[in-house]
């Protein structure tokens, strides 16, 4: 008899608990979203509407004027062609860096996992060490080397640096992935006389769809978001979008055009945000792959 009210009590407690749980979660999500919402609202305002203390207010007449100005008219230094110049520079860096660094990491990952390479663990350790080096420690000699090779202030130079410093993590995730591939498969192909590259391109690469997506998202966001490599190995002509953005916001004199700045900031974040939203779980696997083995 006494269990009846107890059960009801427990039910009620549980319901209160669940409600509180969702309330806290929703509150947390609001907190995470507020900065983005503020940015979007500010970018849709007119210059006159951007007044002190109005960051949380909706724009009265939402318009994309600030976006258009940020994209094609805003002055970055003496260049008044807007942030789009940086966008195209970033594309020029992004595409070859992405393809070449992933290919390099995959081939090396294969050589160090499912091939009879001796001292593979030691070599992997040497390559992985690169992931822990703060760029500041090596930037000066690297700039000098790039200058000596004629790579300073060229897209090729920036691409090469992205390949070199993408290698550690990419090699790790690919070798972790290839370890799971049955060795019989590779041995059979070797018996048939296929060489290292034939086996890589013919057997392993077609099996690598999932890990390729992980690498694509990881490197895709990482390279697009890079600032330090672009600013150190380039000059204003070839600066990627992040550097152009920082120059735009940091170099305005007098009245700051916050609506234009926020539009430019959003434009710069759109490619990685889209990549993140499209890729879902692969993004999480990418950013944790360096940390969590397997």
């Amino acid at each position: 008899m006494t269990t009846q009210p107890n059960l009801a009590m427990r039910n009620w407690n549980q319901r209160v608990g669940r409600t509180a749980l969702y309330l806290v979660l929703i509150l947390a999500c609001v907190a995470y979203l507020v900065p983005l919402v503020v940015m979007v609202m500010t970018s849709l305002k007119t210059a006159g509407e951007v007044q002190p203390g109005t960051i949380f207010m909706w724009p009265e007449n939402p318009s994309f004027d600030a976006w258009i100005k940020a994209w094609s008219q805003a002055c970055i230094g003496l260049d008044c062609r807007g942030i789009r110049v940086g966008f195209w520079n970033s594309v020029m860096i992004w595409v070859p860096s992405l393809i070449l660094s992933i290919l390099a990491g995959a081939i090396l990952g294969f050589a160090l996992s499912r091939w009879q390479t001796r001292h593979a663990g030691l070599i992997l350790g040497l390559v992985l060490f690169g992931a822990f080096i703060p760029l500041q420690v090596v930037i000066y000699p690297l700039i000098k080397m790039a200058a000596n090779l004629g790579l300073y202030n060229s897209f090729a130079g920036i691409v090469v640096v992205h390949i070199i410093f993408g290698l550690p993590v990419l090699t790790l995730i690919f070798s972790n992935f290839y370890v799971g591939i049955p060795v019989e498969l590779i041995n059979a192909a070797r018996v048939d006389g296929a060489g290292f590259f034939r086996i890589f391109f013919g057997i392993l690469l077609p099996m690598s769809r999932n890990i390729l997506i992980v690498a694509l998202v990881l490197q895709g966001t990482g390279i697009w978001n890079d600032y330090i490599v672009g600013v150190s190995f380039g000059t204003p002509d070839i600066y990627p979008m992040t550097v152009k953005l920082q120059t735009l916001v940091g170099s305005q004199f007098g009245e700051k055009e916050y609506n234009v700045n926020m539009a430019a900031t959003l434009l710069t974040s759109l490619p990685p945000l889209l990549l993140y939203l499209v890729s879902g779980r692969y993004f999480v696997r990418g950013i944790t792959s360096g940390a969590v083995k397997g």
């Binding site: 926020m262 945000l273 879902g280």
Partner: peptide, 21 residues
């Protein structure tokens, strides 16, 4: 998705957003 999206942003972008807020 909401808790993770800031990780997709450049630190330059993160810095500029918070400077503004």
């Amino acid at each position: 998705t909401i808790v993770l999206y800031p990780l997709a942003l450049s630190f330059i972008v993160v810095g500029l957003i918070w400077q503004w807020v």
